[in-house]
Amino acid sequence: MKPQRFSPAGVALILGLAFLYLPLAVVIGYSFNASKLVTVWTGFSTRWYGELLADSQLMAAARNSLVVALVSATLAVVLGTAAGIVFARFGKFRGRTALAGMIAAPLVLPDVIAGISLLLLFVAAEQTFAWMPGRGLFTVIIAHAGFTMAYVAVIVQARLKGMEREIEEAAADLGARPGAVFLHITLPMLKPALIAGWLLAFVLSLDDLVIASFVAGPQSTTLPMVVFSSIRLGVSPKINALATLIIVGTLVLLAAAAWIGRGALKMKTPRL
């Protein structure tokens, strides 16, 4: 069917996309505004970027967020890959439905629920085991790996299901042991899914406010936490600059991923 040029659905699509992008465009535009009054345009300037970089509190939080995102995304890829393999390749086993439910629940579970429950776990662990370190970045890492692994699992599972079983069987038939099949065949073929999964986990971790607010230790404030307490007080040009950097950074990251693992972009839409 040929798309009609001005079908009602087509108009809705254009309006919907405009709805999605206009606010972001405005933020980016105003980040270059010279005026401190966010809405009055007084001229092009990059002074807010300078102030942003000079804000040591923000920079420290950004560093924390990067560390958390890097480590938790990597952990999420390992866990999510295991879960994806279990669901795509292990057929029926006892408790499959229950496990599937628990793995996938964080995709939709409100963040406040995940945040409070994990915090109570960490507090109880601190009380019970004297050797447990207090809450800090590592508790955020665990919490983030837990909810981002769900996304990785979905992506990996979809990729494995789309992959012919015969390819792995051919490798076994040619003499490869299970470990070698996984290392030389399954893993390389999963590469686009792993890249997409890692990126998604990384971005989601970088973005999380609610869960981190619950589980982070006093010395381990993350970037969204600082941003949140700042924008609660209102709109500020410095945050506009930060938002611009985040938007541009995400785009660069995605473009790089698309370039490194061709096919990764196609995979990035998890089938929910």
């Binding site: 969204p224 924008i231 945050i239 985040i246 995400t250």
Partner: peptide, 11 residues
């Protein structure tokens, strides 16, 4: 893929 917080902030 871009920050949830930033998108709400934009509004």
């Amino acid at each position: 893929w871009t920050s949830f917080l930033i998108r709400i902030y934009a509004w």
